[in-house]
């Protein structure tokens, strides 16, 4: 079920919410990631950064969940950015061209800096 994937709201910076994802994003856990992401957006966290530094594994099911969250964020007039993306997921993002809409940063600090630049 979902016990091997966990999302925690780490902190908020103005309109920006950093959420840490812990565990493995697989065929089984991806629906939970999608549901939690949509829930956060529903609660008003429209500018989301997902910190994936504690994600051990993420396959194409995880990609589907991220696209779902991105669509929801877009619909709410917000954004979704990723930090510390695992290698395999980064390769898939690049191959599928999704890195052009889903910005991926090396660290959460980089994502925050980029956000501050954009909103400055």
């Amino acid at each position: 079920m979902t016990e091997d994937l966990h999302l925690a709201v780490e902190h908020t910076h103005g309109s920006l919410t950093v959420t840490t994802v812990t565990g493995e994003i697989s065929f089984r856990t991806a629906p939970h990631l999608r549901a939690r992401g949509l829930e956060l957006i529903g609660q008003g966290h429209h500018q989301l950064v997902l910190d994936l530094s504690d994600v051990g594994f993420c396959d194409s099911a995880g990609l589907s969940a991220l696209i779902g969250i991105w669509h929801a964020a877009q619909g709410a007039g917000g954004t979704l950015a990723l930090a510390a993306v695992p290698d395999r997921l980064m390769r898939v993002l690049t191959l599928t061209g999704l890195h052009t809409v889903l910005p991926a940063y090396a660290t959460v600090a980089d994502a925050l800096a980029a956000h501050q630049r954009d909103t400055a």
Binding site: L63, I67, T96, G97, L98, T100, V101
Partner: peptide, 8 residues
């Protein structure tokens, strides 16, 4: 530049 199909 070919992107994932059905996402965007």
């Amino acid at each position: 530049g070919g992107m994932l199909i059905g996402a965007l």
